[in-house]
């Protein structure tokens, strides 16, 4: 057996560790893998072109909402989202993101995976709302904490999506598992695969919700620490 194609994986790992531009790393890995598998150059280009054509649906989801979101942002969508959430009493970053997590995971479990997403929900609505609440809980937010809250908004979208969609029986992953096992001579019921995903889906929700509560706690202690640090100064004045 020719083990050399594994060199492509090594290129990816080394490239990411050394933080080279990811696009260059990935295209190099594709070239190295193909050459190590002894594909002639034209056939390799063909393989890359064919694969690229087959996966064209990927950028579609990212691209299509942009014009709409851009227009709305131009007219103050972020400000409106922040104004809206400021009017909700008792809202905190942790509570907002927990509710979003529940909604995202729940709707994905019903097969509605396109109800969220980074370009259409997180950037224009969820992240600005979380940022506004963090600002309210912790005035004088540093850029670092601000970025942490925004990253958490994106992370919450991913976690809700991943661990919700897989318990929807018609989802591609279930079909993939069922078909693969059948080809290997093992019969399973797709419904059972979906059902056995539920314990993990619940665990994912609980773990992440607890972490979101701790984010609130972190913002509160950070705020208290800053207030304490500022106090002696005001006394001196």
């Amino acid at each position: 057996m020719n083990y050399w194609p594994l060199l492509g994986i090594a290129v990816v790992m080394i490239g990411f560790v050394l933080r080279y531009n990811a696009v260059l790393v990935v295209i190099s890995a594709a070239l190295v893998t193909g050459l190590c598998a002894l594909m002639p150059p034209v056939q390799l280009l063909s393989a890359i072109g064919e694969s690229f054509l087959k996966t064209r649906s990927l950028p579609v989801i990212l691209l299509l909402p942009l014009a709409i979101i851009g227009l709305l942002e131009r007219h103050g969508l972020k400000q409106q989202a922040q104004r809206f959430i400021a009017g909700v009493k008792g809202a905190t970053v942790g509570r907002l993101l927990s509710i979003y997590l529940l909604a995202r995971e729940g709707s994905a479990a019903l097969g509605l995976t396109s109800l969220g997403g980074h370009p259409q929900m997180v950037r224009p609505l969820v992240a600005p709302m979380a940022e506004a609440l963090a600002e309210r809980q912790h005035p004088g937010l540093t850029q670092q904490v601000r970025d942490k809250v925004k990253a958490m908004a994106a992370a919450t979208d991913n976690i809700g999506l991943f661990f919700g969609e897989d318990i929807f029986v018609a989802f591609g992953a279930i079909v993939l598992m069922h078909t693969f096992l059948r080809e290997s001579g093992i019969e399973t019921d797709p419904m059972h695969i979906a059902l056995w995903g539920i314990p993990t889906a619940i665990a994912a929700f609980l773990i992440h919700a607890i972490r979101l509560r701790r984010l609130d706690h972190y913002l509160a202690t950070e705020q208290a620490r800053l207030a304490k640090a500022a106090q002696p100064e005001t006394e001196c004045n």
């Binding site: 194609p5 492509g8 990935v26 893998t33 594909m39 694969s51 950028p59 990212l62």
Partner: peptide, 25 residues
């Protein structure tokens, strides 16, 4: 450039398949 990355990674996955990386692992 991050816009191109997911598409390129999916392509790399298929090239891995054609080169038999899965079978080797």
């Amino acid at each position: 450039w991050a816009f191109l990355l997911p598409h390129l990674l999916a392509t790399l996955g298929l090239v891995f398949n054609q080169a038999g990386v899965g079978q080797i692992i």
